[in-house]
Design a binder for these strands. Structure first.
Lengths: 194, 194
DNA sequence: AGAATTAGGGACCGATTGGTACATTATCAC
DNA sequence: GTGATAATGTACCAATCGGTCCCTAATTCT
C-alpha cells in the first residue's frame, strides 16, 4: 500500500559488509556506504536507522555467512580436532581472494576515536563469549583425547584465540595463506592425536 | 637568537605517544593532541610539521623506549631462548598498568580510511623487516639447538610473529598478563631445550 | 635601542563527518 | 481517479577534521 523498495536489502548489506570489513567501523564513511550501495542517505537511514545499527546488521550477517564454520569445529570430538578445524577455517576465511583480508570485527575492535568505544567493547565481549564456549568444549572433550601436557582447557582456549587474532592480523598484512597454514601446523605440534 | 621554546619536546612526544598508542593514528585528532600536550596547533605544526611526521617521531620513540628488548632477545644463542625472551618482553610490555594496552603500531596498522593507507603499509613493512631478522637469527642459532621438528626458520619466525600480534590484540581486549604468560608457555611447549 | 629571528595565540580555511527536514515520487487499496 | 502510505532525492545542519595565515610576544645579536 505504498511505494515499494527499489533495492534489495540483502545486496545492500553485502556491499556494506565488504566496506566495513575492509576499513572497520570508523574507517567507513556514510559517503563510502552511499557509493557502494548506490543508495541515498535517506534510503539508508530509512532502512537501517543509522550507521551503528547498520554495522550491527552487517556483523550479524558476517557471523552467519563467514563464521559458521565455528559450529562444526566446536562439534568435533577431541581438542585437537576442534582446534584444527577452527584454525583451518580461519586460514581459509582469510585466504580467499574473494573476501577482504583480515577480520571484520578485529578491524573495528582494535583502535579508534572514543566515539566508537562502546562498539569496540561489545565486539570484545562477543570474542570473550566465544572463548568461553571454546574452553567449555575443550573441557568436555579432553577426556576423549588429552590436551598438551600442563595445559588447562582455559589455557588452550586462550592460546587458540590468540593465534586466531594473530592470523587475522597477518592476513591483513598480506601474509599468504600457505604461510598461515604452516603457522597453524607449527602451533599444533604439541597437541596429541595427530 | 630568537624566542625560546616554552615546552619540552620530549614531554610533548611522550604525551602524543600515549594518545597514538591508545587510539591509533586516525583515532587521534589534532584537538586530542592539543589537549594532551597543552600546545596550540601553531606550536605543534611549527615543531613537528604535521600530524603524520609527528606520528613517525612518536613511532621512533616507541621503538626506542618500549621495543628495545627485541635486541637482547635476538642476541640469545638458541631459537627457544630467542622466542622466549621476545614473547616474555611482549607480555611485560602489554601487562603493565603504566602503559596503554595493546601495540601502538598494530592499533594503527589494522584498519582505517583510505587516507592513512600509506602509513599502514609502512608499518606493515617494518613488521616484515623484523620478521626477516627473526628468521635469520633462527637460521643462525638452530645449529646450537634445533627448532621443533618439521619447522623451518621461516615457519618459526612467522609463528612467533603471529603470536606476538595475537597477544597484542588480547591485551587490547583486556586479557590479563597472567593469561598471556600461560599462552606463551603453551606456544613454546614443542620448542626444545627448556 | 634597535633589528632579526623564532615561538605562540587565534582566527580562519575548505572538506568531510554523521544525521535531519522536507518536498517529491511511486505504489497500493478503494 | 483519489487518498493513504512509504520510498526517494535534495538541501541542509552543526560539529569536526587536518591545515594555514598572520599578528603578537619573547629572546639574542649588533
Amino acid at each position: 500500500m505504498a511505494r515499494p523498495r527499489e533495492f534489495d536489502e540483502d545486496e545492500v548489506l553485502q556491499a556494506a559488509l565488504r566496506l566495513f570489513w575492509e576499513k572497520g567501523y570508523e574507517g567507513t564513511s556514510l559517503s563510502d556506504l552511499m557509493d557502494a550501495t548506490r543508495l541515498t542517505k535517506s534510503s539508508l537511514y530509512k532502512a537501517f536507522g543509522n550507521k551503528e545499527t547498520l554495522f550491527w546488521r552487517v556483523v550479524e550477517r558476517y557471523q552467519r555467512d563467514f563464521l559458521d564454520f565455528r559450529h562444526g569445529a566446536l562439534a568435533e570430538p577431541t581438542p585437537r580436532r576442534i582446534a584444527e578445524r577452527l584454525l583451518d577455517g580461519i586460514v581459509e576465511l582469510h585466504g580467499g581472494r574473494v573476501n577482504p583480508v583480515g577480520c571484520l570485527e578485529l578491524n573495528t575492535a582494535l583502535a579508534g576515536s572514543t566515539d566508537s568505544e562502546p562498539i569496540r567493547q561489545e565486539l570484545i565481549r562477543g570474542r570473550e563469549l566465544f572463548r568461553q564456549r571454546l574452553r567449555d568444549r575443550f573441557e568436555e572433550t579432553m577426556a576423549a583425547a588429552p590436551l598438551p601436557s600442563g595445559m588447562t582447557s582455559d589455557d588452550a582456549a586462550s592460546f587458540v584465540i590468540s593465534l586466531i587474532q594473530g592470523l587475522a592480523v597477518q592476513a591483513k598484512g598480506g601474509v599468504p595463506p600457505e604461510t598461515a597454514r604452516r603457522v597453524v601446523h607449527a602451533a599444533l605440534l604439541s597437541w596429541p592425536e595427530a
